[in-house]
Computed example of a mutant assay.
Amino acid sequence: MEKTKDKIATIILYVISGFVILLLVAFISYILIKGGSSLTPSFIFGNPKFTEAGGGIGPQLFNSFYLLVITLIITIPIGVGAGIYLAEYARKGKILNIIRLSIETMAALPSIVVGLFGLVVFVQMAKWGYSLIAGALAITILNLSSMTRVCENAIRVASLGVKESSLGLGATKWQTIKKVILPMAMPQILTGIILASGRIFGEAAALIYTAGMSASPLNFSNISFIDKASPFAITRSTETLAVYIWKINSEGMLPDATKVANGASAVLVIMILLFNFTARILGKKLHESYTGKI
């Protein structure tokens, strides 16, 4: 009887897993089929004779990657640091309860609310205007709770069995965290980074109110983090690919807006898939190098 129940439960889990995979494959296939005809160099990089995407989606694609880099530079140190504190240093009490309540509350915040908060604080009060740094900070608020929880769980699991051994051999607590626990927790932490990256690529609501909806031509000969004419400036308005897809669908300014949106969506999905696969391969290599498997 118990074996029969176990087989039935196993079959049900396999069916659910297969349905999830099938749903993902169908979703990705639909987007790629609808937008596949637009995936040309002219569509991505621009061409004076090509008007379907207003000259190409190259600026929006670059803005998405650049926003990803800036946001991860802010999110990763804070998320990993918070995870280390909660897993290794925090003591049970009112302060810890307040921290966990704050993390749970941040995780439940709608992106549109975070966008309005960023509009008031970063755009208006800080007087940064619609800028890349304002958008990066808004996305950081959205991602910080999940990043912190992933890092905390990864560090807590990785420390089992090795923490006492390292301390017993004479290593300090920080040496144990830095040299033993963090390398073992790296694959799980990288998973959190991948999840955060997907949120950055696909987010639009929060960026509309903070990063803006204008994409100027890119002049890579001008390298500056302050001059708004430079593509690397964190103070310039930054229209990402997700925001661009929303804008052309909502405004209807282009005669072939549907085709452009389908093509831009296909590019966005391909970029996310490439990033996920690359990040997982890199994470595996890092884990093997830290654990001495190479």
Rank of each mutant, 00 (worst) to 15 (best):
G55P: 15
V150W: 03
V120M: 08
M147S: 10
L86A: 09
L96C: 07
L119D: 13
N143S: 05
A134K: 07
P77S: 02
S102Y: 11
R100V: 00
I133Q: 03
G81D: 02
M125L: 07
L61V: 12
G115I: 01
W128M: 14
K94N: 10
I139V: 14
I98R: 01
S102T: 15
F122L: 13
G56I: 06
A82C: 12
L137M: 06
L119H: 11
S102M: 12
P110A: 01
I57D: 15
I99S: 08
F122E: 05
A138L: 05
G56F: 08
I84D: 06
G81W: 01
G81R: 02
I84S: 09
F62K: 04
L68S: 15
L67A: 14
L119N: 15
V120C: 07
L72P: 05
L144F: 05
I99A: 11
Y85T: 07
A90L: 01
I76Q: 07
I95Y: 06
S146D: 11
E104I: 05
F117Q: 02
V80Y: 10
I78D: 03
M147A: 12
I103M: 14
N63T: 11
F122Y: 08
K92P: 13
S64K: 06
K92M: 05
I95V: 15
F117M: 14
I78S: 03
E104W: 04
A138K: 01
A82D: 10
P77R: 03
I57S: 14
I133G: 00
V120H: 02
T148K: 04
A90G: 08
E88A: 08
I70L: 12
G55F: 13
N97E: 12
S131C: 01
L116G: 14
G54K: 04
L109M: 12
A126R: 01
A107W: 02
K94R: 11
G115W: 03
L142P: 03
M147P: 05
N143F: 02
N97Y: 06
P110C: 01
V123L: 03
R149F: 04
I103A: 09
F62Q: 07
L86D: 07
S111L: 05
K127N: 13
L132H: 00
I57Q: 15
A107S: 11
G58D: 14
L119W: 10
L109K: 02
T140N: 10
S64I: 11
M125F: 10
L96K: 15
I133Y: 01
V120E: 06
T140I: 02
N63S: 12
Q60C: 13
N63E: 12
G55S: 08
L72W: 10
T105N: 04
M106A: 13
L101T: 09
L109N: 04
K92E: 13
L67S: 09
R149G: 01
G58Y: 15
K127W: 01
G83M: 00
S131N: 03
E104M: 02
